[in-house]
């Protein structure tokens, strides 16, 4: 690892530093404000300064059966969509990495399409297709929708890792008498393990909060984001919504944080995070 030599940096002008700091605060402070509002005793408005402090809303939220159902549903959807993305994304990355075939470039394009096009396109496209085939909207139609845009996250992470892994290691393993399965188990898998973990965690976070595609592919199911969306347009339980929003931030924060940390350490170079 190179030492401090690359850190021979010019000093940033004060104005630039302040502007950069301001942007960082703009990105983060709004989320802290939600945390603050979980403590408000005020049920009907968003009055600031808060008229007092209470922690009772956490207890109230925990008692709500509808929230628990939504939370469980979102967890299940995210888990299965992530599993599907891990399998499909890794297979696609392995194929693109190991061979040169006709249409190879189009694979990346096809996989990135669900996140490059506005979410509403994916949502309504799936709705017309599922509706046109008379398939009832259910848990599984939500999972199918989520998997389309989760695959690319795993694919990008795993492909980036394959490209940094030397192909000679695989050849060495085969030369030393390991069969393909052993090579996969003892050489390839340990190498891509953290990339799978990072990709999987991001896919989970992405699916867990998704709302646009879900509004089109869900039937009567209320995922946690759909529950929050209902509260956004027609606020009925403001204090409970504050608690739920806080819980969602906390549930997604850890996987995102560790996924970014893993990618940063693996590349240990600047640039590309997504």
């Amino acid at each position: 690892m190179p030492s401090k030599s690359s850190d021979n940096l010019p000093k940033a002008p004060l104005g630039l530093t302040l502007a950069a700091l301001g942007t960082l605060l703009f990105l983060h402070v709004p989320m802290w404000i939600i945390f603050l509002y979980t403590l408000t005793p005020d049920e009907t408005t968003y009055t600031f300064p808060l008229p007092g402090f209470t922690t009772k809303w956490f207890g109230v939220a925990l008692q709500r059966a509808d929230l628990w159902r939504s939370l469980t549903l979102s967890m299940q959807v995210a888990a299965i969509a992530t599993l599907a993305a891990l399998i499909l994304g890794t297979l696609a990355a392995a194929a693109v990495y190991r061979s040169n075939f006709f249409g190879r470039e189009s694979i990346s394009f096809l996989l990135v399409l669900p996140i490059a096009l506005p979410g509403i396109v994916t949502g309504i496209a799936l709705r017309t297709a599922i509706g046109g085939l008379d398939i009832p909207f259910s848990f599984w139609t939500i999972v199918i929708g989520h998997a389309t845009f989760c695959v690319v996250v795993v694919y990008n992470n795993v492909l980036a890792r394959f490209r940094r892994t030397s192909g000679t290691m695989i050849e060495a393993s085969m030369d030393l008498g390991a069969n393909s399965f052993q090579t996969f188990r003892y050489v390839v898998l340990p190498n891509i393990a953290t990339a799978l973990l990072a990709g999987g965690m991001l896919a989970f976070a992405l699916s867990f909060d998704e709302v646009i595609v879900t509004t089109f592919t869900a039937g009567q199911q209320t995922t946690l984001p759909i529950w929050i969306f209902g509260q956004l347009s027609r606020p009925r339980d403001r204090p409970v919504t504050n608690v739920v929003a806080t819980i969602v931030i906390l549930i997604t924060f850890l996987p995102i944080f560790f996924a970014q940390k893993i990618s940063a350490e693996a590349s240990d170079t600047e640039g590309e995070t997504k």
Partner: peptide, 19 residues
């Protein structure tokens, strides 16, 4: 800094609107 920028990118879009 990159982590500080990417955390909002990946974290709940809906909650960020709600804020």
């Amino acid at each position: 800094l990159l982590i500080a920028v990417t955390i909002p990118l990946w974290s709940s879009y809906l909650v960020r609107v709600y804020a």
